[in-house]
Write a protein that binds this DNA or RNA. Structure first.
Lengths: 161, 161
DNA sequence: GACCCGGTACTCGGATATAATATGTCCGAGTCTGTACGG
DNA sequence: CCGTACAGACTCGGACATATTATATCCGAGTACCGGGTC
């Protein structure tokens, strides 16, 4: 079990999109070139983000995507759930019901104890992701990435909006 | 991204195996019958548990599996990692290196900021699983499952060891 | 000169192939247990 | 009665199908820009 790499792409793309000036757009083509990933497939990830209301796109020349909300209003969980879906990572198939010792009168008033633990772990994972916003990521990058690289990258992006 | 259902099977099987008296074994066939899952495929999950040192098996008649350690020494994480592997659920492919603005002199002294967040979430998930032991599960079951069903199930298991 | 209009180039979005993985099945080699046979 | 050889049952490991998912690609529909024509 491993997350799709579209998650990585989507997260990095959102990070890049936070450089886009207001009222402008950055095309899928530019994002694909920047990350060196197939443009057509990356498009699917961006579509998912668009449907989730995280980014918004427009058509025609000078079209593309931009963030639909402020970076401080977008969490990692928003992005990951747009790609992976909101469903739990653990699917309980209720195999406890197959216990041959059970009779009809044994009803399940409580969810399966095993599933409860797995769901709790899932919730912990999501809570961590919910606690990090895109604005936090930008701050971290500012602290760890060389200033000249950040500046050049920003210029590169603005140049293509 | 969703966990394999072998996780569910393995967890439930370990729970059942905690009923097995010392020095006895419960066969894959019995476990498969109990949960109504394909014996051959369940066998793969049990093999994984065996390789991880969580259960131990023996050959021949009256062979099968039993827990290799005390239920209080087996965590949910042990079982899940036996099935899913110990690797992180997030694979960083370092797409930041493809940034066309980068030059050779830009070295990465720190791991990718995006990956760090994802790994932190992964760690939170694992920590939750590490915090629940098989003995805790048994206790929960004793509180939520009707006493007569527990008793009958225990007898069913002992009957087949 | 200003406005309108249509063609063109570019975009997104969904539909369609291919690769990888999870799921499920099957079989042979090795090993232990219990039984039958022979001493 | 005791020891030994054999048959059966079970595990283990690998090889082999199938279903589902992830990855990658393609094509059509729609829209904004640009140039030319008109008032």
């Amino acid at each position: 079990m491993i997350l799709k790499n579209q998650n990585e792409w989507a997260l990095h793309c959102c990070s890049v999109l936070s450089w886009v000036p207001p009222e402008r757009y950055l095309s899928t083509k530019a994002l694909a070139e920047f990350h060196d990933v197939p443009k057509e497939y990356l498009s699917k990830a961006l579509q998912a983000l668009s449907q989730a209301g995280i980014v918004e796109g427009t058509l025609g020349p000078s079209g593309g995507y931009r963030l639909a909300r402020k970076p401080s209003d977008i969490t990692f969980l928003d992005i990951v759930e747009a790609i992976e879906g909101k469903g739990s990572t653990f699917a309980c198939t209720e195999i406890r019901k197959n216990n041959p010792c059970r009779t009809a009168k044994h009803c399940d008033n409580k969810p399966c104890a095993v599933a409860r633990v797995m769901w709790e772990a899932d919730a912990a994972w999501r809570n961590t992701l919910r606690g990090v916003r895109l604005s936090d990521l930008a701050k971290t990058l500012k602290e760890t990435v060389p200033a000249d690289l950040l500046e050049k990258t920003g210029a590169w992006v603005v140049d293509r909006t």
